[in-house]
Nucleic acid binder design. Structure first.
Length: 358
DNA sequence: AAACCGGGGAT
DNA sequence: ATCCCAGGTTT
């Protein structure tokens, strides 16, 4: 690709101004203490759709629990999910462990340093592949995330819809044009740091920008209008009755979710899809589904939990069941103080405050 | 291409 | 309420 840049865009000066700013202003982040490819990898997976401040404590805990590729490969999946609890997008944790096991089995525990092998690992897409190759191995590969698309859309006045998958390829072409081959690690991180600190979605700090003189959007005064992004659809609402089912031995019924789909392999309190069956059929539905007779008790509260693509509206009820054991493989009877040993989604963590109220 | 997949923080 | 965050996988 050629002729995508303005003739007066001096690439070398741009690289120098950007990287000098980065070296002087970069944040002291735990995954920047060395270039261990495993730690870079873990940080990049955690940072997908997740803010730096949210990731930092999880990163410390995760690396402490699983310091090496070998340690993570040998770990129990439930322990990995427990370390991921609250971070969201739990398939990231499952894919990361699967990929790490592949690295141990096929690559002698060494994270691959080439696009083909790296990109074939579970959970490593175009962005993460480029991030690991550039940051850990200093290879001049693009790592285009939301920051890069925002910064470059303004620098080069690109009006393509960044919500469309094909648009990422356009930005990768721009990065290949302007990336610094002497220090691709600093270059890619500098663009992302600029997007996080200066070139923010709203009210960008253009007066502090080290590359303001190169920015076409700033020169036209349209930086607030970029990038262009199509609006997302509204989430659909799904009503459930969530049940805090107590047994005569003062244990509670919890359920392990399916291994695929939403919140895979996490635990929850049983839920009845009341929108499909109606409130009058809760006990019969539950008996048909689990073979357990419920005695419905008090209404404990309600909560709304918003996901990226749907909304749970939970009505929380106490219930009793005359159980000492459970047959269903999904279910388990657990004392209140042992519930914390299982990975729960945040929505059901919020329900635990009601465990004391009856 | 569009849908699915979490949770939190800023505005 | 709305947006977006160091995105990837599945359909």
């Amino acid at each position: 690709m050629k002729n995508i840049l303005l003739q007066n865009f001096n690439i070398s000066d741009f690289q120098k101004d950007l990287i000098n700013w980065y070296q002087a202003n970069k944040r002291d982040l735990p995954w920047r203490k060395d270039q261990d490819p495993y730690k870079v990898w873990v940080s990049e997976i955690m940072l997908q759709q997740t803010k730096v401040d949210t990731v930092i404590p999880y990163f410390h805990c995760f690396i402490s629990n699983f310091p090496t590729v070998e340690a993570l490969a040998a770990a129990d999946q439930q322990d990995v999910l427990k370390s991921w609890e609250g971070l969201g997008y739990y398939s990231r944790a499952r894919n990361l462990q699967n990929a790490v096991r592949e690295v141990v089995a096929s690559y002698d525990g060494v994270v691959p340093d080439n696009p083909k092998e790296l990109g074939d690992l579970k959970g490593i897409g175009p962005y993460t592949k480029g991030a690991i190759l550039s940051i850990a191995y200093n290879k001049p590969e693009p790592a285009v995330d939301g920051n890069v698309m925002r910064v470059f859309s303004r620098l080069f006045y690109i009006e393509d819809d960044i919500a469309q998958p094909k648009t990422r390829k356009l930005f990768e072409a721009y990065v290949r044009e302007v990336i610094d081959h002497d220090d691709p690690s600093s270059f890619n991180q500098a663009v992302m740091e600029l997007g996080a600190i200066i070139c923010t979605p709203k009210s960008p700090a253009c007066m502090l920008c080290p590359v303001q003189e190169y920015c076409q959007a700033f020169s036209e005064g349209v930086q607030e209008n970029l990038p262009v992004k199509k609006k997302a659809k509204k989430q659909r609402k799904i009503p459930y009755v969530a049940l805090l089912i107590r047994t005569p031995e003062d244990k509670y019924v919890i359920e392990k979710r399916s291994s695929d789909g939403l919140l895979a392999d996490l635990w929850q309190f049983p839920m009845v899809p009341v929108g499909e069956i109606g409130y009058s059929h809760i006990e019969s539905w539950f008996y048909q589904e689990y073979g357990i007779s419920l005695n419905m008790k008090d209404h404990a509260g309600k909560l709304k939990h918003v996901f990226s693509h749907l909304i749970w509206e939970l009505e929380i009820y106490h219930a009793e069941a005359e159980l000492t054991t459970v047959e269903d493989e999904r279910l388990r009877l657990v004392a209140k103080e042992d519930i914390a040993n299982y990975p729960f989604p945040v929505s059901h963590q919020k329900m635990m405050v009601h465990l004391n109220t009856v």
